[in-house]
Amino acid sequence: MRELINMVVVLTGISLASGGLLASLRENTQERIDQQVLEFVKGPSVRSVFKDATNDPIATRFQLKDGEAVRTLFVGEIEGAFRGVALEAAGKGYKGEIGLVVAIDTQTGKVIGINVTTHSETPGLGAKAKTDPAFAAQFKGAPVSGPAKVTQDGGSINAISGATITSRAVAGGVSNAFTIYERLKPQIEQKLKEIRK
């Protein structure tokens, strides 16, 4: 009996100390880890959609509540003004979700650029959505007022040959980004005003 109690007490003690140490360490490193994840996971995509930005779009970011979700938006300084915002959206691809970063010019209401971040499409076919810059470049200048569509659906985006589903998914994802943008527009403009100050 004594031995049993001893075992329980010692193991509880060790686990408590371990839990306490890790909780406090997590608390202290959380902010830096989030920043590193942004930098390494989303950083390359955000930088590539804001090729001409004169600021660091990763550093200039804000968060907005969108219903249940919290969205992180990145701000790009274009031609001397903070007018570009990049947001994340997703479309349903041939095999799972296709993650996108879409940058929108808030003054003209047109797309600055898009970039595929994550996908699990077929290599050589659907995967071209990420590897072939010519496909993504077609979205440049598309107006946010209407959804982006591939030519088969009456739009202007030429689908990747052999990967219509993927192309539709990307167009759908970009359109999702438009919807999110339109929904959050008043809040985004408010935030941009604060940043400009």
């Binding site: 686990s15 371990s18 490193t29 390494f40």
Partner: peptide, 21 residues
């Protein structure tokens, strides 16, 4: 195992925070 696992998570968190690549 508890002791070792604790230090492993310490390393993991510190690496994530400072040497993410």
């Amino acid at each position: 195992i508890v002791v070792i696992a604790t230090f492993v998570i310490v390393v993991e968190l510190v690496m994530q925070a400072y040497t993410y690549a």
